[in-house]
């Protein structure tokens, strides 16, 4: 009886892995597809006949590194994104703490205003922002990208962190206060560790938005000084060579990899964070 149960459970496990594996493959298919495009010679990509055994080629790889300052684009992306997430956290954590813990007039309205910045179409503010940054002398710098990415993501980072803070029992803070901790201490030693999954979740989502950001980056970055991966992709579409599909695919893949690695590395926190926010937020 026991062995039977064990066996059936084993079968079940195999089935489970098979289904999950199949699903993972479906999800990964587009990624593998553009990776395969990126590693093929140009001539093979644009033929109308399907090619079942593609030729492996590093043409695009060599091209993006030698003909284009891809390393700088990558560096720009990474710096701008990390910087923007840090700015977001520094601003969002105190804001969320205030919104979730103190009672004052208009608190809920302020919370809503913060969220509402996310509701307008980005194009509406594109021109004013261009002038704003031009007057500040920030055009074509990574600093400008950090600021703009931070501004785009700040509202929902604040909102996610706030929902996590609301879940922390008030008792915990009362205990810390009677134990002799100041407000800042409480925030630093009690609250932040307790909402770490939320902070990580918000940061990862902010990173994903930032790495995909195109409109404002294009507006602000006019030379390779501040070009990021997402804008660099546009380089491969308009030139005398026509659309360079394999380079686009490869750069897209390179933009995808860092986020993928981060997500896998902190997967445990992330899944907990997303579900927690979903249920209780």
């Amino acid at each position: 009886m026991a062995s039977m149960r064990k066996k059936s459970r084993g079968d079940n496990l195999v089935l489970r892995y098979a289904i999950l594996g199949a699903w993972a493959l479906v999800c990964l298919l587009p990624v593998l597809w553009f990776l395969s495009i990126g590693l093929r010679p140009r001539t093979e990509i644009i033929t109308p006949q399907p090619i079942y055994w593609p030729t492996f080629s590093l043409d695009a790889w060599h091209m993006i590194w030698s003909d284009w300052p891809m390393a700088r684009y990558l560096r720009n992306s990474v710096l701008a994104i990390i910087g923007s997430v840090l700015i977001d956290l520094v601003l969002a954590i105190p804001a969320a703490y205030s919104l979730s813990r103190y009672t004052y007039r208009g608190r809920d309205d302020i919370g809503f205003y913060i969220l509402s910045t996310r509701m307008m179409a980005p194009a509406i503010v594109a021109i004013p922002i261009f002038f704003l940054f031009r007057n500040a002398g920030l055009l074509d710098t990574i600093w400008a990208l950090m600021l703009i990415y931070a501004a785009i993501n700040l509202s929902f980072v604040t909102w996610i962190i706030r929902s996590y803070m609301l879940d922390i029992p008030k008792e915990l803070e009362d205990a810390a206060r009677t134990d002799g901790a100041s407000d800042l201490r409480i925030l630093w030693e009690i609250i932040i560790p307790a909402i770490l999954p939320g902070i990580i979740t918000a940061s990862v989502i902010a990173m994903i938005f930032a790495i995909n950001e195109f409109l404002f980056t294009l507006l602000i970055a006019s030379t390779s000084q501040a070009y990021t991966m997402s804008v660099a992709l546009a380089n491969f579409t308009g030139g005398s060579d026509g659309v360079i599909y394999n380079a686009i695919a490869l750069v897209a893949f390179l933009a995808f990899v860092p986020v993928f690695i981060v997500v896998v590395a902190i997967q445990k926190h992330l899944s907990r964070g997303l579900t927690m926010g979903a249920v209780k937020g």
Binding site: P169, E171, L172, D174, A175, A176, R177, T178, D179, G180, A181, S182, E189, I190, P193, A194, L196
Partner: peptide, 20 residues
């Protein structure tokens, strides 16, 4: 006088142990 400057210690219903 602020809670943290009063020499009182409190035990809470939900224990309020710091989870981290």
């Amino acid at each position: 006088i602020d809670a943290r400057d009063r020499d009182v210690a409190m035990v809470f219903q939900g224990y309020a142990l710091y989870p981290n």
